[in-house]
């Protein structure tokens, strides 16, 4: 791969292995051109933040990374999107299997109307990840522990997940996402419906999970992006405007549009 300044992904030498390598990605919703010729490399075992005004394409692109856009009939994705060197849009790729590798956490906590235990056990069961009840119990416990929720729910695993507080529900969704042992965790504004204390817990959790996963987070909070991420990508009108080390993006962005956006001058 040749690195040039025209390639926004090449602005800083990667510290870690690449998880995603994307080139010439275009996304259309019918006639609307949502992502325009995007190129980005996403590194493993660190947190990459996508920022940008509403409608800039950041969530659309996030949803390309585990083919969530497949469910939208008018959505057309073209270009090269490789996960560990494999084209994730190749015909032989099963989107369900892909989503087991690339988990997702949404803006609003959305636990299934099932018990806390069954919420976490759901993925491992459908993917046949465990062979005995003991193994499944252990996986549920370790997932809830990693999500920082085990201590709060271990005595009420049979109670409905929807009975938890908002912050607990979001951690339950994270536990559910990591129970299938994914390699990547996509988070679409995971804290926008949470209070500052619950937000702080999720951010700490992101910091803890970073050593094991490739994490990509979409956020509208500049401070959150600055706190949790090591790389930041700024999207505007379907373009990747600037991508680099988070410290550089928030301290000395090179593009005027980035500077304006992070200071709330448009959006």
């Amino acid at each position: 791969m040749t690195l040039t300044m025209e390639n926004p992904a090449a602005q800083a030498a990667p510290r870690n292995d690449l998880k995603f390598a994307c080139r010439g990605v275009n996304v259309h919703y019918g006639d609307a051109h949502a992502i325009k010729d995007l190129a980005i490399d996403i590194e493993d075992r660190l947190v990459t933040a996508f920022i940008g005004p509403s409608g800039c394409g950041k969530s659309t692109f996030l949803r390309c990374l585990n083919r969530m856009n497949d469910t939208i009939s008018i959505c057309r994705v073209t270009g090269d999107l490789k996960l560990d060197g494999e084209d994730i849009y190749a015909p032989r790729v099963d989107p369900v299997q892909l989503r087991a590798r690339v988990g997702m956490v949404f803006q609003k906590p959305n636990p299934f109307p099932k018990s806390i235990y069954d919420n976490v056990a759901y993925g491992p069961r459908i993917h046949g990840l465990t062979s005995s009840r003991e193994e499944l119990d252990a996986l549920v416990e370790s997932s809830l522990t990693k999500a920082g929720l085990w201590g709060e729910v271990k005595d009420r695993l049979d109670k409905p997940g929807t009975g938890l507080s908002g912050g607990q529900q979001q951690r339950l969704c994270i536990a559910r996402a990591i129970a299938t042992k994914p390699e990547v965790l996509l988070m679409d504004e995971p804290c926008s419906a949470l209070d500052p204390i619950a937000t702080d817990r999720i951010e700490q959790l992101i910091g803890d999970l970073r050593s094991q996963f490739c994490i990509v987070i979409v956020t509208h909070s500049m401070q959150q992006a600055a706190r949790v991420s090591q790389k930041t990508a700024f999207f505007h009108l379907g373009h990747l405007v600037e991508y680099g080390d988070t410290a550089d993006i928030f301290n000395k962005p090179r593009d005027k549009r980035t500077e304006d956006y992070i200071n709330g001058r448009f959006g």
Binding site: L46, A226, R227, S229, Q230, D245, T246, A247, N251
Partner: peptide, 15 residues
């Protein structure tokens, strides 16, 4: 006498 120089803070990396 000079005011402390070199003290301009830089944003630390989270890495």
């Amino acid at each position: 006498s000079a005011p402390a120089s070199g003290a301009a803070p830089s944003v630390g990396s989270n890495a």
